[in-house]
Design a binder for these strands. Sequence first.
DNA 1: GCAAGAAGTGAATGGCGATTCACAAAAAAA
DNA 2: TTTTTTTGTGAATCGCCATTCACTTCTTGC
Lengths: 203, 203
Amino acid sequence: MSYKRSFLMEERLADNRQRILKAARALVAEGGFNHASIAAVASSAGLSAGAIYRYFPSKSALFVEVLTSAIDHEIAILQQIVKGEGDVTARLRACVESFANRALEGPYLAYAFIAEPAEQEVDEARLLGRIRFGEVFKSLLIEGVEKREFPAQSIDIGAACIVGAFTEALIRPIAPRAKRDGRAELVEGIVAFCLRAVGAKIS
Amino acid sequence: MSYKRSFLMEERLADNRQRILKAARALVAEGGFNHASIAAVASSAGLSAGAIYRYFPSKSALFVEVLTSAIDHEIAILQQIVKGEGDVTARLRACVESFANRALEGPYLAYAFIAEPAEQEVDEARLLGRIRFGEVFKSLLIEGVEKREFPAQSIDIGAACIVGAFTEALIRPIAPRAKRDGRAELVEGIVAFCLRAVGAKIS
DNA sequence: GCAAGAAGTGAATGGCGATTCACAAAAAAA
DNA sequence: TTTTTTTGTGAATCGCCATTCACTTCTTGC
């Protein structure tokens, strides 16, 4: 009577889904969103264009998921640092450093995720991601102010500013066909800026 | 023999061009780039779609000019402040305040110019604009460091960070359908962040 | 093995809006 | 006024891809 998917079938479907996501991510990393048409994703995942629609309702939905899961991953890394040991200043430094270094590692991907023009939906997901990054810094700021490591200040605004600051400072070296030199100095410069901005003592 | 445009004709053509630019700007201010199709711009300027192409080679070119001239205007305002009197700290404060207030004044326009997804070319113009804003702050930073108002620091990075910081802090309240309250606090928060970041004494 | 249902195919469709173009109206030269 | 050149019109084209769909191939239940 009713059709029931075997375990193996389930596996294969799940695997396909993952392959689609992976292919999409890889194509974005390679040449940005433009480079990643449904046809390209499909063939790169070893499926037909039509098949994609068995797994995702639309192109936007697919890329929103690609973006969101990448962001989840980054956030998890940052939260790990936030929850770690050391004073707040050190952890803030570590967060900014980590984010910046990872972005410079895969510049095209980071560019796409931070700044490349994309559809409405993707863009909304991006905004949401930025807000989530903001929350991470917000928690650090709250702790820092509480522990008197930082002076009293507007937490929400400060968090947004931090995200904006390192993001912007990264965009230029990250953008397609930009020169990328002095990475260490760049990262250190960004960190120093952020630490001064929150009023951390020296460092 | 050769056709020569009369003075009146020249005038009319120049006027048409201006009207097109103005219509485009108005439509963007009203509903973002999406809202501003060639057809819409044309009818709003009192011309036919085809006529636009006698004045601009492409839609992108038109919007690049709209964007660029808006940026020119903003930059001029900031440079006025930079060249003004008062210590560097005060002028930096005035620049950030001015930009933020003007952005909050015409939120949709600012959003489109700062963050709305658009064609490649427009996006490139936007990046260029950001760099130019950076230069303004760069000159302030250089002066501030020279005059010992600010400690030694990475000028280029700092300038980029400032632009990113206020930009990001503005995007959320500026974005379509965002709530916009506490404007004065927002601006003051951003200013405070930036001043601490460059190491300005109190304020 | 065989019917019924599910997954996969890829060429055709569809929508959208920029761009073009054959033609019309207006302006300058003759 | 007639001719030539420029400017303006707006419907038709065109390009681009996401999305669909009639059909094939594979899975499952019997």
